[in-house]
Structure formats: structure tokens, C-alpha cells
Write a protein that binds this DNA or RNA. Structure first.
Length: 427
RNA sequence: GUGGGUGUAGCUCAGUUGGUUAGAGCGCCGGACUGUGGCUCCGGAGGUCGCGGGUUCAAGUCCCGUUACCCACCCCA
């Protein structure tokens, strides 16, 4: 059989998995301080959850979803992002009934059928938060602050991060603006690419995302939503900016930041870095989606959130020279001198582990020398040597790997002696 | 979906104008006064040279195809 992982997937082996767990721990600790609670929704949903939420015309829905029919004839899709499922769940379970507020965070794999490259996978992991039922600008600023602080907490220097901010408007001003952009594209069709011309009908705002130089140039003269926002959106945006200013978090207004999902309203934001990500640059982003729950048939419920990419964030951390903490695999290595004491060594290791000490021992019947080498490699501070001599005397030889000092300790009180020795060595 | 690059030991790679048993470093295993690590020395294990055709007396080395990975376009986390 073919032992290769499918295209666009990657095994998370110890080095990466350790980083992943570290990132999760930092996230859990930080998010909890802001009052967010964990919530895990299914990895797959009814396809409609995504088509209605993300939007039929988006790249994600139109060409990147893993969609299949299950044995019951339902159309199922592996989640390409996390927000849609969380909002669907909040609606199903009535988490925001009677004006209640829900603050949730999650992490897990997302799936998009794309050509993989640096910082872009078919299965990729995201950590995200969502706050539902909160319409005030302070919610926007809180979510932005969490994302910023999270990257800082991981060791990515603030100076290497760029926070982009924009407002997408709402149902009062966006449709009007959309038509203006569509009209602009049609009137300059000759100078824009084919794709952008098509966008005039499907999703005119995406023309701002086009990378072709002619389009970039032309679109830079297109009307900006900033100038078309209704009073309410304009006031909301101003309030968010003022709050982020007060937090001392630097940002750049990017009127062309439109993001790839249709559900966004008002505030959208993205954090980018330049090093380590190949041709990608966004490590996290999000925005407000005040109409999403209604789109699912629920009551009008404001909400917003962010998602950050694990793989990209790790790349950014590596580019910044961040060392992921990695504990020693063993505090004590139990070495058996020969076969006659292996069972006793095994029992000793278990005893140490039961008392809370990280203990390792050999399972390959290796020589004592090889076991010592192994102990060194694993970073063990002590080796408990158990041989026929020790066993006969009811003792072990405890070797301090740093000082090479050896002391005889009673086997029966080994755990306590080891703990004391470890405490002394560390203190 | 399109384009470019690369596929040789666990890892990083070298393999000359096609020519005898395919190499190095690191890692791994064992040994260097019979029960002891980090340095050094010695020895050892480990490779269908991505896969399939073709050219040739002879191919890791040339040609064709195929596949995988990487990178880029597109888009996004």
C-alpha cells in the first residue's frame, strides 16, 4: 500500500506536536482571562451551513470544499473554517436566547481543497474565538486585542506584526456601495482582467483582492467603502479604532481589506507578518458577522471572532527565532546492569513514576553503556543504576549526571531520595 | 486548474564525458582493562538509486511517460 499521507496533509510528529500543544496551552490560558470557554463543534456539517454562511460566490464554496454524500443521502462538507459551525451550534442550542452572550473558543483541523504550498495545506489547524450577542465596539476591540496579545505571548515580536483594519459596512450601506463598485468595474472593464469583469456580477468587492498590476492600479481609483459608510457603521468603526488606539496596539487602515467570506459586516481585521510564510502573509484574521445567525433562520444576533492558522503561526515563530519549550524526556533513567535485574529495574521505574517522577528505562536489553548514553541523550539528571550488587544490598546507585557523583540509596526509599536529589539539583 | 524545481541510506547530500561489489557527514548499533554518559578512535548494520518503459554490450547517470513532494500563480489561516 501507499504509506504516504494524502496531498496537502502532514503528520504532526513530536517536534511539531509539542509546538502545537504549547500553542494550545498559551491560547487556553489567554482566552480564559478574557472569559472565553472551550467549544468543539463537528468537523463536518450539512453543506448548507457553509454555502449559506460563507457565500456561494466565494472561492471557498465554489471550488475548495470537501463535499460528499453520506450513506443516508445527505450532502456533507468537511468544515473549511470554524465560524459557521459555531454559529449554527449557538442557534441550535439557543446559546444567545433572550439576549444572552456566548464567548467561545475552539481549535482543530479545517479542510480546503487547494494546491498546497508553503503555509497552505488541505488540512490545516486553526484556533479561533467567537463572541455572540455583543454589538458594542468594545467587543470588536477585545477580539482584536486577544489576537494581538496571543501572538505576542507566543514570542512573535510586535514590531514584526502588522494589524490591518477595515469596515465592510452593513445592510444599509454595503449593497449601495457594492453597486457602485460593480458600476466602476463595468465602466473600466477594458482595463481589468477577465476574472475581475466577472466579479462585477458575482462579488465585485473581491476585485480589490486581485493581484494583477493593471487591476491593482485601476481598482486603486475605485470608490472606497470608507467614504460610503452609513452613519451607524461609520460611528461603530470610529469607536473601534479609538478603543484599539487606547490599547496602544498599532494598526493600519486598509480600505481594500475585504477578506474571503461573505458573512462579514462592519469590522474586519487581519494580522500579517513578512518573514517565514513564503508568499503568504496572514497569520490570523477575523471580523464581525451581524447577519450570520439570521441567515441560518435565527433571530438577529450580532457576533464576531477571529481564526488563526497554526501552521503559519509556527512558521512565523520559527522566523522570529522562538524556541518552543521542550521538557526533558526523563528526570531519572533507570539502568539495569544485566538481565538478572531487569524486572527489579522495571518495578523501580514504575515506583518512581507512581510517585510523580518522569522515569525512563530500556526495553531493548541494551548494554549498561548504551543505557547511560541513552540517559544522557534524554536529558536525565540522574541515573538509578541497579545491578546484582545493589539488588543484593537492597540499594540502588544514584548517579548525578551533571557532577558524576554517585551515592548508594536504599531501594525501598528510592522515590523519596530521588525527589530530594532532584529538588537539590534544581535548587 | 496552470507553471517551475526536485526525487540516491533514518536525516542532509555527493555521485565526474553512461563502465567493475553506489559513497560522505550526521544519526543508529557494537567495541577500545571483564558494571557507567557527554570528547576521541575502531568496527558494523542500513539503499527495489520514486515508479514504468526505452536507447545501449553496459544507466543512479541519456530519452519518454508517470507519480510524489516542494515552490509560485490563484486564494486564504
Amino acid at each position: 500500500m501507499n504509506a504516504q499521507a494524502p496531498k496537502g496533509t502532514a503528520d504532526m510528529l513530536p517536534d511539531v506536536a509539542r509546538a502545537w500543544e504549547h500553542m494550545q496551552r498559551v491560547a487556553q490560558d489567554l482566552f480564559a482571562r478574557y472569559g472565553y470557554e472551550p467549544a468543539y463543534t463537528p468537523l463536518f456539517e450539512h453543506t448548507e451551513v457553509f454555502t449559506r454562511g460563507i457565500g456561494e460566490a466565494t472561492d471557498i464554496v465554489s471550488k475548495e470544499m470537501y463535499t460528499f454524500e453520506d450513506k443516508g443521502g445527505r450532502s456533507i462538507t468537511l468544515r473549511p473554517e470554524g465560524t459557521a459551525g459555531v454559529v449554527r451550534s449557538a442557534l441550535e442550542k439557543n446559546l444567545t436566547a433572550n439576549g444572552a452572550q456566548a464567548k467561545l473558543y475552539y481549535s482543530g483541523p479545517m479542510f480546503r481543497y487547494e494546491r498546497p504550498q508553503k503555509g497552505r495545506m488541505r488540512q490545516f489547524w486553526q484556533i479561533g474565538i467567537e463572541i455572540l450577542g455583543a454589538a458594542e465596539p468594545s467587543a470588536d476591540a477585545e477580539v482584536i486585542a486577544i489576537l494581538w496579545r496571543y501572538f505576542e505571548a507566543l514570542g512573535i515580536p510586535a514590531a514584526s506584526m502588522r494589524l490591518l483594519l477595515n469596515s465592510m459596512g452593513d445592510e444599509a450601506c454595503r449593497p449601495r456601495y457594492r453597486e457602485k463598485v460593480a458600476a466602476f468595474i463595468r465602466s473600466h472593464g477594458a482595463e481589468l482582467c477577465e476574472e475581475c469583469n466577472r466579479r462585477a456580477d458575482t462579488n465585485p468587492l473581491r476585485a480589490f483582492d486581485c493581484k494583477k498590476s493593471a487591476c491593482v492600479k485601476m481598482m486603486s481609483q475605485a470608490p472606497l467603502l470608507r467614504d460610503e459608510l452609513c452613519n451607524a457603521c461609520s460611528a461603530h468603526y470610529a469607536a473601534v479604532k479609538a478603543l484599539v488606539d487606547d490599547l496602544g496596539i498599532p494598526y493600519t487602515e486598509e480600505p481594500k481589506l475585504v477578506r474571503g467570506l461573505d458573512y462579514y459586516t462592519r469590522t474586519v481585521f487581519e494580522i500579517q507578518v513578512d518573514a517565514g510564510l513564503g508568499s503568504q502573509n496572514a497569520i490570523g484574521g477575523g471580523g464581525r458577522y451581524d447577519r450570520l445567525m439570521e441567515e441560518y433562520g435565527g433571530p438577529p444576533t450580532p457576533g464576531l471572532g477571529f481564526a488563526l492558522g497554526f501552521e503559519r503561526t509556527l512558521l512565523a515563530m520559527q522566523a522570529a527565532g522562538v524556541e518552543v519549550p521542550s521538557p526533558a524526556r526523563a528526570e531519572v533513567y533507570v539502568a539495569a546492569v544485566d538481565d538478572s535485574v531487569r524486572d527489579a529495574a522495571f518495578a523501580l521505574a514504575q515506583c518512581l513514576r507512581d510517585s510523580g517522577v518522569a522515569a525512563e528505562l530500556d526495553h531493548q536489553a541494551r548494554s549498561l553503556k548504551s543505557q547511560m548514553k541513552q540517559a544522557d541523550r534524554l536529558g536525565a539528571r540522574f541515573v538509578a543504576v541497579l545491578g546484582p550488587d545493589e539488588l543484593a544490598a537492597g540499594e540502588i546507585t544514584l548517579r548525578n549526571m551533571g557532577t558524576k557523583e554517585e551515592t548508594r540509596v536504599a531501594l525501598a526509599s528510592a522515590p523519596a531520595a530521588v525527589e530530594a536529589a532532584l529538588a537539590a539539583a534544581l535548587g
